[in-house]
């Protein structure tokens, strides 16, 4: 639900008439940002770094124009791409406590799970399974299987990394080109999730919600509409790719030990990001920017794409949550 600032004390179901919820994802924070939960930091409190501030401000402006007084009511805790950012048990308990004190709900976000992070994830799930209305965002099907088996009562949201559709910012502008063969054009503007086999899997694991990216190419109507599950859309960052060999995490390792998948790091991602600027001869000279956040590359979608996606919300009955990524780091706003 999207909450007006003055409606915080209202019961959850009566806080809004819009039926749209706003969540904020804090992938790099280890402890809860109390200013957010206490209502001191409004939705518009964005990152300091201009490269991050601009897409944040454009998004908040777009949301507030459509939904005046909107305020977040759900915190996403953990990273969708790195197991080292799964909170320790005590930290998750602190998040749950702080969130509930502010009237927020919590979604634990899990990356594709590998051996180094599995144990910590399971400990978090045990805690989460005892919290009312909590949910887990899962980004690999193996983890879906594990969660459903060990915590059958926990709500599973299928994370956006499992939504297999091309999202290459270098090319996506051309994916719906009229010059492309119809079958290819269609295939580039949708996924395989409406096929019977995938539907069977969704039913088997009781998936009631799926996350979706702010695609640069216009997804076909069926991709939004022909689903039984509800949809959360991420903004302003489009997920592009990730690696278990982390570029930022290699910063302080000896040269020959850099880029080993799953190797220890100093969590450099909590202080640094890298902006890459790809040449875009047909563009405005700014290039196409990719942002290395943690061990993944993202693309802040241009404002027209953001507006197009926000415009979908009233018409798509099952699209009822916006997830705003806030690359906020320890020690202050990002």
């Amino acid at each position: 639900m999207i909450l007006a600032d003055d409606e915080r004390t209202a019961p959850p179901m009566n806080r809004t008439g819009t039926g749209v919820e706003v969540g904020i994802s804090f992938p790099f924070l280890s402890s809860p940002p109390r200013a957010f939960f206490d209502g001191e930091s409004p939705l518009s409190a964005g990152p300091r770094e201009p490269a991050l501030r601009m897409p944040h401000d454009a998004l908040v402006d777009g949301i507030l124009r459509r939904l005046p007084g909107a305020a977040p009511s759900r915190a996403y805790v953990g990273s969708e791409t790195c197991g080292r950012l799964i909170p320790p048990a005590a930290a998750l308990e602190a998040w749950l406590l702080a969130a509930s004190g502010g009237g927020w709900e919590v979604s634990l976000v899990l990356p594709p799970l590998e051996r180094e992070s599995q144990e910590r994830a399971m400990e978090c799930l045990r805690i989460l399974s005892e919290a009312p209305d909590a949910e887990v965002v899962v980004n690999d099907w193996g983890a879906v299987h594990m969660v459903r088996k060990r915590f059958p009562g926990l709500s599973i949201v299928l994370g956006r990394l499992t939504h297999k559709t091309l999202r290459d910012p270098r090319l996506a502008d051309h994916f719906d080109s009229p010059a492309a063969p119809a079958a290819a054009r269609s295939a580039l503007c949708r996924s395989g999730e409406l096929a019977p086999g995938y539907r069977e899997l969704m039913k088997r694991y009781g998936i009631g919600r799926r996350e979706i990216d702010p695609f640069l190419q216009p997804l076909e109507d069926a991709e939004w509409e022909d689903r039984t599950e509800r949809l959360s859309v991420h903004l302003p960052y489009l997920f592009v790719t990730m690696g278990r060999s982390c570029l930022l995490g290699a910063m302080h390792r000896e040269r020959e030990d850099k880029f080993i998948a799953g190797a220890p790091c100093r969590m450099e991602c909590r202080a640094h990001a890298i902006e890459f600027r790809f040449p875009d001869p047909a563009g405005n000279g700014e290039g196409k920017r990719l942002l290395e956040l943690g061990n993944a590359l993202y693309h802040a979608v241009p404002q027209p794409v953001m507006e197009r996606i926000l415009d979908l919300i009233p018409a798509r009955r099952n699209l009822d949550r916006i997830v705003l990524t806030h690359p906020m780091a320890e020690g202050g706003r990002g």
Binding site: P47, T241, A273, L297, P327, A329
Partner: peptide
């Protein structure tokens, strides 16, 4: 994309208070 990445212009950003 990965092969192109090292040749693309880049800059480091700060996420923390020292931005």
């Amino acid at each position: 994309l990965c092969v192109q990445l090292p040749a693309v212009a880049h800059r480091f950003l700060r996420l923390d208070a020292a931005a």
